[in-house]
Design a protein around this nucleic acid. Structure first.
Lengths: 141, 141
DNA sequence: AGAGAATGTTGTCATTGACAACAATCAGCG
DNA sequence: CGCTGATTGTTGTCAATGACAACATTCTCT
């Protein structure tokens, strides 16, 4: 079955962005299947690691994850004993997020797999193009 | 609320791809809200326009949309009288997809809005970066 | 003619994003 | 101080999406 013409789709950055993003996430999910970690969970773990004691609101705003969704996502990470949330001293509404020792061990493994994923992605995309894309895309926030 | 450190997330192309892609799609959906067209529907309409008479399998494979999902998506486009599917002459299993006259009129409006979306995206991203990203991302398939 | 593949349809499930309501707590202001 | 409005986290619900299986029909190949 030959591919069809893309027509006007060729002019839309969003289309190509989406196609590559889907490919990247599928590879990530497959590669981290053994740890049963999805991209959103991984990003949350990294943010907690880099910012111990953050509140859920801060994590959510940084990653663009909505409060309700993040609450459920964190509930799952807590159930797996990878994070804990104790009350923040300064503000009783906030939960202070930390990795557990078990969570740090798991994250070490996960980061290892994620690096393999990134290496495979760089190979698939071409390492030069990978760098160029990183430089172009990083300047958003 | 200040943003938190991204930590290792800074090394993952997938993260930045995803953030920009989400932004682009949200803008697209908002901008085309008056026509109630979502990105996937738009892409299917463009493919049918560029390849009249295609089968669903061909469209699905081109866009990476699964058979079951495409069947329902097309059902909705047919309900809106934007496309029709009549039996293919050569293969009775296949449906031959075409835009209706009404569908062509609607698509003209939609393409107009989509161009505005793309222009705004180029402005947001920077027109030079927009071009560079297109060049880097287009070479996949 | 018959076996296996392709096509489109329908059903179901899990994940996700979005939104609203709620309780607890905080911040600001009289 | 006490009150009002905002913030934080939680839970409930709904729609959209992706994935997968089962099925009838039709084609291809031998």
């Amino acid at each position: 079955m030959e591919k069809l013409a893309l027509g006007q789709l060729n002019k839309h950055l969003g289309y190509f962005l989406r196609r590559l993003q889907v490919w990247v996430f599928q590879d990530f999910i497959q590669r981290l299947g053994t740890m049963k970690v999805r991209p959103a969970q991984y990003s949350v773990l990294l943010i907690i690691e880099a910012n111990p004691g953050s509140s859920q609101a801060a994590v959510g705003q940084t990653l663009g994850i909505e409060r309700a969704r993040l609450a459920r996502l964190l509930h799952e990470l807590e159930r797996r004993k990878w994070i804990n949330r104790h009350a923040s001293g300064s503000d009783a509404r906030k939960h202070s997020l930390h990795l557990t020792a078990e969570g740090e061990k798991a994250l070490a493994k996960i980061k290892n797999l994620a690096e393999q994923h990134e290496a495979q992605l760089a190979e698939r995309v071409g390492s030069k193009r990978h760098m160029q894309l990183m430089d172009l895309l990083r300047d958003f926030g």
